[in-house]
Design a binder for these strands. Structure first.
Lengths: 339, 339
DNA sequence: GGTTACCTTCAAAGCGCTTTCAAATTTCTC
DNA sequence: GAGAAATTTGAAAGCGCTTTGAAGGTAACC
């Protein structure tokens, strides 16, 4: 059933039927009711391909997700971020176009989206320091929103969490407990968020006149195995750290495992604070084993990012939106006074 | 730059330019070369909205992902499955349309995709027993492929792993090691894969004249916390199980944690076998703490599922494809003789 | 040389909608 | 009750491509 058939079955023109269904005001209420009833009865749905061509809008938002080079790892936080964003898209009538490519192919993916008009805007996640995607999208003139930020962040829309403050605060918390040898198990420091977290950690140490020790800092893709390896190395040193600051619950699980294997008890022999993205399948709440954590829901972030992006697509000339969220420090059972 | 402009700048008709770019044979080789050069120079990309309308093909595949009711949990295996499928889609020129909805809204999402023609086919994941989506898609006449299977599986395309055999095999492995009180920490048994795994487990027990004990079987959404809770309960009984068969590495991490907390060592005091989807961020390999596992890569499955679905979209009348993959049993360090 | 076949190109229709512009009808206004 | 204004509907153009059907130009054949 298409518009033409529906219109002729009603004895009306396509124009009127189209207007009735799209809520235009200049339609007689009775006519509209009649049209709506017929459309429902026939289960009529306007053909989205035709509509998109006619309106010039794709009603689609692009997400380009890259997997990291060698390991081909897909960052698991994307699932929850997408769930949050997807909720909003569905509500607002937008489709979500997902492109999963190798890191090197991302530029081509964005260029293609811009040139062939398959999306109205794109979401950028996990920016690196001086990420080339931002300049590219500015050049292409495609509306976009960055989850995270980098460089001179005034010239585009972003939503970020206060990574530096969160990790400074977490480090201070450990210092207050008497820890002084605190290891940092960070994400790849080419990523902007990881660089900020490291700065927060170092600032807190310096403020207490502790010189940051490079040998206590690790940076890599945040898998469980990485957390385990890094912690194992650190814990087997003669002068081992008494506390760990970790960038992801997944890696923190590896760190915890390494501690257990050495007979060390969390919160007594060794302390862990992790950043917690509140992933739905790794809920770090009262029920399970609760890490002390800086916490900010990636899913809520996804939801809000989608809202902002859609607003910006509708009003391309509005001023840039910058939203900085604080992470809360949740004290769990993985921290305690330095031994 | 659109086709009309490109054509007139070349002094050719739209017809010829379109044909030259789409590889039709009736174009003079010199003309084609000229057109291709000009298109490249102008960075011309055909407008996908127009092309889709004209061809009647969406060049898009839909994935509807549901989050489970109350917990709103998004199954983390989707990220890796999507990565595998996305790779193939990109190669074949298909877009991936992702719809993330509450479980109850899935039917509407499929109906909409079928009615408005935004996709050429859909991927169905995680079928429940007698899943209504299958009948729905058959009725809608939309090509689809099921990852997993259920009910009378002859009438549609599917790719599945041999869940029953894998869990029977794993149970036999534990029985051979002398375990007899083996707990099953399963996924929700409304899911077809979980029901099959349970049958495999029970068959293996019965074959050794052990009556399956309901009190040793748990079934729920496979989070870490669930694994931890279930194992904690079981290990605190007077007559505790000596081995665990777990449906997901994520839950197995919770089980392991519960064991550690009670001073029990894996492979000595308690054994764990888990199913391992080979998620990229939870790699259960030699480096990290390796569980004994039935193993099958969800990412490879995604890749193959995409290939099959695209084949079927291109040839709608070909016979149904049924592909059953064996999971391999990888012996790790989490299993040992019964104490 | 005339007919046929082939190669190459093009004009125009069509995909199924939205939207502009105009027309028909009804309601107001004095 | 005539003219103006408001309300409601429709014809047709257009979105940017693909594809059909026709035609111009060459080569091939007898």
């Amino acid at each position: 059933m298409n518009l033409k058939e529906l219109a002729s079955s009603l004895g009306l023109s396509q124009t009127t039927v189209s207007r009735a269904l799209n809520g235009y005001p200049e339609v007689n209420p009775e006519t509209r009711a009649r049209v709506e009833a017929a459309a429902r009865a026939a289960n009529y749905q306007p053909n989205s391909r035709a509509r998109r061509l006619a309106t010039g809008r794709a009603m689609t938002i692009g997400h380009v997700i890259t997997h990291t080079g060698e390991t081909e790892m897909v960052n698991p936080i994307f699932a929850d971020f997408l769930a949050g964003a997807g909720e909003v898209y569905a509500r607002e009538g937008y489709d979500l176009l997902l492109s999963i490519v190798h890191e090197g192919a991302a530029e081509r993916a964005y260029r293609q989206m811009a040139a062939n008009g398959s999306v109205d805007g794109v979401m950028v996640q996990g920016p690196r320091q001086e990420d080339p995607r931002i300049a590219l999208l500015q050049e292409l003139g495609l509306p976009f929103l960055v989850h995270g930020r980098t460089g001179d962040a005034r010239g585009y829309n972003w939503l970020d969490i206060a990574n530096l403050r969160a990790f400074r605060r977490a480090t201070e918390f450990l210092l207050d407990l008497g820890h002084s040898r605190i290891a940092l198990i960070n994400g790849q420091e080419a990523m902007d968020f990881a660089a900020r977290r490291r700065r927060g950690y170092e600032e807190a140490l310096r403020a207490r006149s502790i010189t940051p020790d490079e040998s206590l800092m690790y940076a890599d893709v945040m898998t469980e195995g990485y957390g385990h390896r890094a912690a194992a190395q650190l814990l087997d040193r003669e002068n081992r750290p008494t506390a760990f600051l970790v960038s992801s619950v997944i890696s923190a699980i590896g760190v915890r495992q390494a501690a257990w294997e050495r007979g060390l008890q969390l919160g007594r022999d060794v302390s862990i604070i992790t950043h917690d993205d509140v992933l739905s399948y790794l809920n770090n709440d009262a029920e399970g084993p609760a890490f002390t954590a800086t916490r900010s829901s990636i899913r809520l972030a996804g939801r809000r990012c989608a809202e902002i992006l859609i607003e910006r697509i509708k009003q391309p000339d509005a001023p840039f939106v910058h939203e900085l969220w604080e992470a809360e420090l949740m004290v769990g059972r993985s921290t305690g006074p330095a031994p």
